[in-house]
Nucleic acid binder design. Sequence first.
DNA 1: GACGACATACCGACCAGTTGGTATGTTCGG
DNA 2: CCGAACATACCAACTGGTCGGTATGTCGTC
Lengths: 214, 214
Amino acid sequence: MPSRPTTKIKQPAQKRSAKDKLLDAAVHVVRQKGYAGTSVDDLCKAAGVTKGAFFHHFESKEDLAVAAAQYWNDFTSAFFRSAPYHAHKDPLDRVLGYIDFRRQIIQGSLQDYTCLLGTMVQEAYETSPRIRQACETVISSHAAVIANDLAAAKKLHVPDATWDPQELALFTQVVMQGGFVMAKAKHGPELAESSILHLRRYIEFLFGRNPTTQ
Amino acid sequence: MPSRPTTKIKQPAQKRSAKDKLLDAAVHVVRQKGYAGTSVDDLCKAAGVTKGAFFHHFESKEDLAVAAAQYWNDFTSAFFRSAPYHAHKDPLDRVLGYIDFRRQIIQGSLQDYTCLLGTMVQEAYETSPRIRQACETVISSHAAVIANDLAAAKKLHVPDATWDPQELALFTQVVMQGGFVMAKAKHGPELAESSILHLRRYIEFLFGRNPTTQ
DNA sequence: GACGACATACCGACCAGTTGGTATGTTCGG
DNA sequence: CCGAACATACCAACTGGTCGGTATGTCGTC
C-alpha cells in the first residue's frame, strides 16, 4: 500500500483525497463488473464522492483507467517487493518463491485476487489504445522483474538451456491471467491454484529438478 | 458450421435467418468490443437486421449471450472434431496434435482467434450467473474431450504418474485463455504461440519425453 | 481574494427493451 | 382445392432511463 506519490509534500494526517478514493474504487469495482460495465456513477458512489470530483481529477473515464493501471502498478510493485521470497539467495528459489507466493495470495472473493490489468485489457484492447498500452507496460515491467531472477537462475544452474528467460517470465503471467479467467468461469480459485502448481513443476523441470510429485 | 437445428424440415435453399446472423455478429463483435461494450444496436447493425428481429428471437441481450455460448460450442466442436490430429492412434499424439493445432490456428486479427467464452465470462462472471454458467459448461465440455485423450495417454505411457488428466486438460485451457489475454495486451499472437509451445514441452516432460528444444 | 478541491444540477446521446404493425407461411375444415 | 384462422419472422418508430461529460456554484485555505 504505497502512500500516494504526491508531488507536493504536505497534507499532514489528511484524509484520503477524492482522487485516491476513486482509484481504489476503480481497482475494486472494475474487477467486479468489468470496465465497460462500470459507470462513472458507480465509481463515484463506491468512492463516496460526486461526479464533479471525478471530472476534476480525471479528464474522462478512459483517463481514470489509465491512471488506475499506474496505481495498480505502484501498489502491486510495493506489495511484491515486500514479500518474503526475496530473502532467498539462489535466484531460482526466488522464482519458485514468487510462484508459491502468487498461489498463496489467491484468497477471498474473485474481485479481490484477480488482476485489474487482465480485466481491462481484455475489454479495451481494441477500443482504447491508451488503456491497452498502459496495461501492457505494467504487465511487462512486472514480468521483467521475474525475468531478471530467471536469467540469473539460468546462468547459475542451466546456462546451456535454450529457453529465453524473458519469454518464460511472460509465460508465468500467461498462466496467472489464464488462471484468473478460468477461476471466473468456475467461480472459484481451485483451478488457478492447481495451474500455478503445474507452472511450478514445469519450471522445476526446466531447471533439471525432479519435482516432488506430491 | 452447423446448419441451424430446424425442428421442422423445409426451408429449401433459404437464406440465413436473422437469428443466425445475429449469433454470427455476436461471436465477432463481442470478441472485438467486449460484452458490455457491445450494444444491441451494434449487433443489429453488424447482422444487418432490425431491433425488432433481435427481440423476436432473443428475450434480452443476456439471452443472446447465453445462446452465443451454445452457438460457439456447436461451431468449435465441429471444427475441432474435423481437425487432422484425430487420426493419430496414440492418444498422446492426439493431445500433442491438438496443442500444435491450437498454435497453428492463431492467425489473423485478435477478434478472430481469441475465445468468445473467455471474453464474456471475464466480464459477466459476477453480474450474470446465466452467462457465467453457460461459459463454464462449454469450456468444461471442451476440456473433457482433451481429458479423455490425456487419460488414455497416461494409462498407456505413464500409468503411475500422480497428475490428474482432467486437471491437466483444464490447465491447457488456462494456458490458452491466458495466452489470449496477453495477446490482447501485446496486440499480437507471438506470446500466445510461445506459451503454447511451453505447454507442449511441459506435457512432453510429464510423459517422460525429452522434448526437442527447437 | 484567489485558487484548488470539491458539490450540485444538468445536458444531449445512447441504451435496452416495447409497441403496433406487415408479409409470409402453415394448418385444417369443408 | 379453397380459404379462414392462426403462427412465424421480421420491421420502423418509440419510450423511459442511464450514460459520459459539462457548467456553474460553494467552501476552506494560503
